[in-house]
Design a protein around this nucleic acid. Structure first.
Lengths: 338, 338
DNA sequence: GTAACCAATGAAAGCGCTTCCATAGTGGGT
DNA sequence: ACCCACTATGGAAGCGCTTTCATTGGTTAC
């Protein structure tokens, strides 16, 4: 059996109360005693039992992080940022992911039931009733990522999709002189795609440019689907002042590949831009103009906000919106290849 | 305060012992009683306190997963596989990553000190003395990923780098008819790079092909470094029967980009292959011939092995080696572009 | 000299659970 | 009628810790 507080107490010739005080409220104990106890702790290599401690203190120093899916680099950035911040604040991160809404519900229920975490950060691709329900009845503080639930008093950290998309569209129209912009989005139900498309339409309308429904496509964010779409449409798309605005970098890369094969020169014959600023954006030729979405920062801030709430459950809910940043590279024609 | 076992006992009109038995050894309790207790549990929405439970049972149903760095898609695949398996087996995963060896040491010490996990899977890019030391004195079972410690009795799950690299080299030499192969690896100290390079040299020697030290380069696995290296050397590299073997896909992509800019046709003037089979491998033109490394599977198996050991700490250590799979795409010239 | 205070410490309760042991009740074998 | 085995249950100890409360001896204030 591991060494307990009692062993330390015996060795130091004090009571367990004193040892406990050394651990938690050291200012209450005499200098000499303190030193004796610390030496005993050192010698015995004593580590307090987390369970016994948790039983009294009701906290585990663990936070949950629930993500929609761990596939790809997108979410790993969130984990990365969250993990760094959690470590900094003395917490550990329990990471889990859900394949779909149903799975997410099961996952949340499981977390709630085991209630070993002090707080939880949740990112779900779509909020269903059952998820909303599990979140509403949660035992510990919850922070929502990249979305928010209207009525519940949760904190939330979001990406200001609209501002990012507006920045991109204005750049295309005002700086690059785009005359026609084709939008290639993810699924029609995807919240991010919807926000990005709205800003797209808005800027086109405001600028008096055509906003043909035929120039709006909905795919699934995948490279291959986008490439195939481009193969079929490049003949129609290519032309001076024309531009394809893909709702993520992978699709933009697929379109780039199709253009290259078809001999359509980017950005000369057609500009192509992406979104997210994932690693691929720097790995295409020409490199992709895109919108940097601060995922790691989102993860970090979510943890920060969560910890604040754990410390003070009664504070008023905060809503942080992170502003994406336009990243101008070669594919829009405003920057020369290096 | 949350509802406790005592509340349930009262409501069901039984003792807490009986409630506890319903929770742990239901076969010992009478059918009728069982039902009454379960109903009480349901009505009160009772969930056993994990800490009290852990205090007695000495387990938390949590496993640790320590990775070198969370950046990029490489590690997120490991997490993905590990998470799925952990959930399947009723465990939660505490994920953390270390920036460098020193950080890894601190991280491991922290885990060991808090000892809230039942077992831990560790992947470190390089095993230093201090890390080896922390692992040796670990309080709970440890499974090593993609490496192994000779003397310690840990389980390990590794990638058979050698066989993957041999397969690639044989493919290049025997099927593609390569006459000269240039190796572009990661850091000289990187274990994976070392293994891959050994197989490279072995096959060249066995085939009577030249193995010029000048054709071995060590970079840092990054796209940009590889691209710049290629920019400087393409003139020398290009030629019929010549091939660049990059130790990961990103570097291969960088070399591809340089070739494209320089007008060197791949695979016609120069074949280029990668390693890992990450997403980029399918997103380049031509697509990359590479070696698929089953990362998700590695994560899953690590968790599986770990759970077995948690269940039976005395079993003899297992060593699982996963065999990578050659993936032939366009960049080696053996498959036509689609 | 006595009351009031303070710093330092120990004794003990209790957090919510599991489990050993004791007890009561039942039925079968003799 | 008696004993034994067996099932179902409760009582209570104890896991390792925090914290309240009481106790001690030493100061300071009047």
């Amino acid at each position: 059996m591991a060494v307990s507080i009692e062993d330390v107490a015996k060795r130091a010739g004090v009571s367990i109360s004193t040892v406990s005080r050394v651990l938690n409220r050291r200012e209450l104990v005499n200098k000499d005693t303190l030193q004796r106890v610390e030496q005993a702790i050192e010698e015995l290599n004593y580590r307090p039992n987390v369970f016994a401690r948790g039983l009294m203190l009701r906290k585990s120093e663990m936070l949950g992080l629930v993500l929609p899916d761990l596939h790809g680099e997108f979410y790993s950035e969130v984990i990365r940022g969250a993990n760094a911040k959690a470590r900094e604040l003395g917490y550990n991160l329990v990471v889990s992911s859900a394949k779909d809404s149903e799975d997410a519900h099961a996952l949340l229920q499981g977390f709630n039931r085991r209630s070993i975490i002090d707080g939880m950060a949740v990112m779900v691709s779509e909020v269903t009733d059952s998820i909303e329900e599990s979140l509403a009845g949660f035992r510990c503080p919850v922070t929502i990522l990249d979305d928010f639930l209207e009525h519940a008093g949760h904190d939330s950290v979001m990406i200001d999709q609209r501002s990012g998309s507006l920045a991109m569209m204005r750049h295309l129209v005002e700086r690059c002189g785009a005359k026609r912009v084709i939008f290639v989005g993810g699924l029609q139900t995807n919240a991010d795609t919807i926000m990005r498309r709205q800003a797209y339409q808005e800027v086109l309308t405001a600028s008096g440019l055509p906003c043909d429904p035929k120039d709006i496509h909905h795919l699934d964010y995948s490279y291959e689907k986008a490439r195939l779409l481009a193969v079929d449409n490049l003949g129609n798309w290519a032309g001076p002042g024309n531009c394809v605005y893909a709702a993520n970098d992978e699709m933009a890369a697929g379109i780039l590949a199709a253009a290259q094969e078809a001999g359509v020169r980017v950005p000369h014959d057609l500009a192509v831009v992406g979104f997210d600023d994932t690693r691929v954006a720097g790995m295409t030729r020409p490199s992709l103009t895109t919108v940097h979405v601060p995922l790691a920062q989102m993860g970090a801030i979510a943890i920060e906000v969560l910890c604040q709430r754990v410390a003070d459950p009664d504070r008023t809910p905060t809503r942080v919106a992170l502003r994406p940043r336009l990243v101008i590279r070669e594919s829009c024609g405003m920057k020369q290849a290096s």
